[in-house]
Design a protein around this nucleic acid. Structure first.
Length: 302
DNA sequence: CCGCGTCAAGTTCAT
DNA sequence: ATGAACTTGACGCGG
């Protein structure tokens, strides 16, 4: 069975990404914004339940400056009840969430400071998911990082840095092929080396192909084999090219025709599919419209 | 109160 | 060597 999800924002609901400037960041402000963001997140999750969406990516900006030294607030404690309530909602409704640190989180950087900051960012992500009381099926997705003129050395730096991560972070971490540096083939090799799951991104794979002659389906089966029972259902990412923008730009909305074709190749698999498109939940509903059987329990659309 | 320049963070590529 | 793009919306200052 295939389940669909979307990332971070619901275009019809208040933003879960309230933030402030570094110079205005006080403990009170950080907690206040975090409260707002968690409230907005809860609303999105309720919307998801009402519309049969069980897969969602939680914004990395939920806790402002989550891994920055300016944030010395004990937010897991202060926001504990709120975190519990959201976590319980996710568990009770069989939902699956993930997080995905952005482009500035580069674990394999040769600059120690950058790599340390990346590790701290991963620890923050794990703290939040842990704060919700969610197990290791709720993942943190990361790209391998930069190449710096030597892909082999860069891959080695990733595996070395990974080895030094705290165990709880290791249990949540999964890696994804990107559109420039690390192909699906390269990421699958690294995932095998350090024994973590791989997320196959179909769009990035189209931008930066590998495994010549093999179908996406073939690669997805390899990637799925890196997931164990504790990791939960394998995940993949799906998007289309925004025509007219640079190669790799995510499309405004899902191309239903292209997705239909892709869906036919994977429909017999157990997968969570994250749609990475600008119009977020609208594309999920667009697919549900033509495939009502994909809408999960609780869907208002009958 | 509105509009627009700016924002924690890194890497790559173009000039 | 320097700067823009990436991606992206929300902040918050200045008028």
């Amino acid at each position: 069975m295939i389940r669909l999800g979307y990332a971070c924002i619901n275009t019809q609901l208040p933003s879960p990404n309230r933030t402030c400037r570094l110079r205005n960041a006080s403990p009170e402000r950080i907690i206040e914004l975090a409260r707002c963001n968690l409230e907005a997140l809860y609303e999105i999750l309720q919307w998801n339940l009402d519309h049969g969406v069980q897969v969602f990516r939680i914004s990395s900006e939920t806790i402002p400056f989550g891994s920055h030294e300016i944030n010395r607030v004990d937010w897991p404690e202060i926001l504990g009840p709120r975190l519990d309530r959201i976590g319980a909602f996710i568990r009770e409704n069989g939902m699956r969430v993930s997080m995905h640190p952005g482009q500035y989180t580069v674990l394999n950087s040769p600059k120690q400071r950058v790599a340390d900051n990346a590790a701290a960012e991963l620890v923050y992500h794990d703290r939040l998911l842990e704060g919700f009381g969610l197990d290791a099926r709720h993942k943190i997705v990361l790209h391998v990082g930069g190449v710096y003129g030597d892909r082999e050395a860069a891959a080695r730096r990733f595996t070395d840095a990974h080895a030094r991560l705290p165990e709880p972070v290791k249990r949540r971490l999964i890696i994804e092929n990107d559109e420039k540096n690390f192909t699906a083939e390269a990421v699958l090799a690294i995932a095998g080396e350090v024994s973590i799951p791989m997320v196959f991104d179909a769009f990035h794979h189209a931008c930066l192909p590998s495994f010549e002659g093999r179908s996406p389906r073939w690669i997805i089966e390899r990637a799925a084999a890196t997931w164990s029972a504790e990791d939960g259902r394998p995940k993949i990412h799906y998007s289309d090219q925004w025509v007219g923008k640079h190669a790799g730009a995510h499309s405004e909305s899902i191309d239903l025709k292209a997705f239909r074709r892709f869906y036919e190749t994977i429909r017999d698999m157990d997968l969570d599919v994250m749609l990475e498109v600008k119009d977020k939940e609208r594309s999920v509903l667009a697919v549900y419209d033509e495939r009502p059987e994909l809408a999960g329990e609780g869907s208002a659309r009958t």
